[in-house]
Design a protein around this nucleic acid. Structure first.
Lengths: 251, 251
DNA sequence: TGCACTAGCCTGTATATACAACCTGGGGGG
DNA sequence: CCCCCCAGGTTGTATATACAGGCTAGTGCA
C-alpha cells in the first residue's frame, strides 16, 4: 500500500528547504524562478507559484516582483522568537556596541551543558564567555558552548568584531531555536561583569539553536534586570503596526 | 487618482476578518463555503479558496474537508506570542489551578496604567488583583486593568471560576497582544502573596491586548523566579517537533 | 429498527491561460 | 556622455476547469 503521496507543491517546498538546510542555497542566493521550476520539474506555474509563495510567507525566502526569489537571512525566518543578535539590537537603537572576550577555549562540557547539547558529559566543546556593552555600559554576559564540528575555526575568530551569534548564523543555516526565559539572582562574577548592585535580579535567556536537525550551540545570556527587557507583540497580518510599549510603572 | 485597489482575495479576507472582529462571526461559527462566496461576490472559486486558505494558515479559521470552515478560538490565532491563560497552562501540565480574588473594583487609573491603556490619567477602569495557584503553590499575581466599556459586567464575574484572560477572550475577539518581560525584585506585598524568600527575583510579564484597534486591557503578571519560566521555540513548518527544554544548570 | 450505501456538498490540489505590475539592462536619441 | 525608453524576465493576481478525497444526511433495503 503506497503512502497518500504528498502534494506536489509540498514536494517542491521540501526540495528547496532541503537545499537551504544542506547549504547548497545560502542566504541571499537566488532561488530558481517559477518558470525555471516549471521547466525543471514539469509542474504548472501556479503550483510552483504556490510553493514559492508559501516559502515566502513562512520566511524562508523573499520575493521581489520583477527581480526574483532569494533565500532569507535567518532572522527573517523567525519573527516568532527572533534570534536576537545583541549587536544588531543595540545598533538598531542607535547606540554603540562593544564586546570583551573573557574566555575562548576548548573544554569539556559540564553536565548541564552536555544535556542541553545532547552530547556525552565531558565531550570537548568550544566555550566562550563575553561581555557585551551598550554605550560602554555592560548589558549582557554571554556564556556559550558550541559543538566543535560545526565551527572548527571558532578559536581563531575575533568575537569583538563579530558576535558569536552572527558568526554561527554565517557559517551554518540556523533552522530551529528555543528560548527559555527566567529571572535569577546573579552570582558574584556575573554581578561584577554587569556592574550590578546587590539584590538586583538578572533576566536569563537560555537559547539553543539547531541546524540540520542537530544541536549546534547552547548559550546562557545574562542581562541586568534594571537595564534590559524582552518585548514582542503579535499583530495579525493585514493590520497596521502600532507603537511599541515603553515603561509603565505606577509609582 | 484612485488607490492601487487591493486584490480581491485580500478584500475577501478583510471582509471575513471584519465580521469576526465585529462579533458577527463568533468562534466555532460556520464561515461561508467557497461556493457560497463565489455566488455572493462573483469571484472564482480559486480566489475564494485562497482567501479562506490564508485565513486558515493565519489561524483565523479552521477548515475541515467535507464539512466546512469555522471561526477559530483566539488562542489558535497566535502561536507567535501565545496569549497564555494561566489556568490552561497549569491544566496542560496535569496540575490543579485555583485562584483567589484580592481586588475587584472600579478605580481611577494610575499614571503608568493610564499611559499603557492610552486613556487620560484618572479615568475610571476596572481593577483586578488575583493570586493564581498551581497545586496550592502560588505561581502568579495578576494585576489587571480593563477598560470599562469593553466589559461592563466585570464586577459581577466570578474570577475564581474563569480567569480574567479567558473572560476577556470570550466577550471580545482579541486581535493584538504585546508582551514585555523583565526581571524585577518584588515588593513586600507580591513577595508575601507568592510566598517567596528574601532576595528572590520575579519574572514580570506586562501584557497589553487590543481588540477592534483599541486597547482593552493591561496586565502585570508577577511570577516567582524560582518556580516559573517562559519558554518558546521556533520550528520551521514541515520539520518534526523536537522535545522541550528542561533545566540546564551546571552546578 | 438498524444497517449499508450513496448522493451531494465541502475542501484540497493541479493545470492552462491571461493580464498587470515591477525591475533591470541595454540600446538609441539628445 | 547622460538620460530616456523599451524589451524581456519575474512576480502577483484572477479565472475556468477538473478530479480526488472527506464527511454527512438521507434513502432504502433487510
Amino acid at each position: 500500500m503506497s503512502k497518500p503521496a504528498k502534494p506536489r507543491y509540498r514536494q517542491l517546498k521540501e526540495l528547496i528547504i532541503g537545499q537551504i538546510s544542506a547549504g547548497e542555497l545560502r542566504p541571499r542566493d537566488r532561488v530558481p524562478s517559477e518558470n525555471e521550476l516549471v521547466d525543471a520539474t514539469g509542474v504548472s506555474r501556479m503550483t510552483a507559484n504556490r510553493a514559492l509563495r508559501e516559502l515566502n510567507d513562512e520566511g524562508y525566502v523573499e520575493r521581489v516582483a520583477g527581480v526574483g526569489t532569494f533565500v532569507s537571512d535567518f532572522k527573517a525566518v523567525s519573527h516568532v522568537l527572533e534570534v536576537r543578535n545583541i549587536a544588531d539590537e543595540i545598533e538598531r537603537r542607535g547606540h554603540n556596541h562593544t564586546a570583551i572576550v573573557l574566555v575562548q577555549e576548548k573544554s569539556a562540557a559540564a553536565p548541564g551543558t552536555a544535556r542541553a547539547l545532547r552530547v556525552d558529559e565531558g565531550t570537548e566543546v568550544f566555550h566562550l564567555v563575553l561581555i557585551h556593552h551598550e554605550n560602554a555600559l555592560p548589558i549582557q554576559v554571554e556564556h556559550r558552548c558550541v559543538l566543535m564540528e560545526f565551527a572548527p575555526d571558532c578559536l581563531q575568530q575575533d568575537f569583538t568584531a563579530i558576535t558569536p551569534s552572527a558568526y554561527l548564523s554565517a557559517i551554518s543555516p540556523l533552522q530551529e531555536a528555543e528560548h527559555v526565559v527566567r529571572a535569577v539572582m546573579p552570582d558574584a562574577e556575573i554581578r561584577n561583569s554587569l556592574e550590578m548592585g546587590d539584590h538586583e535580579p538578572c533576566l536569563l535567556v537560555s537559547r539553543r539553536t539547531w541546524a540540520h536537525g542537530r544541536t549546534v550551540s547552547f548559550a546562557r545570556l545574562y542581562h541586568p534586570g534594571s537595564r534590559y527587557e524582552l518585548s514582542g507583540h503579535y499583530v495579525p497580518p493585514g493590520t497596521e503596526a502600532f507603537s511599541r510599549a515603553g515603561e509603565y510603572n505606577d509609582e
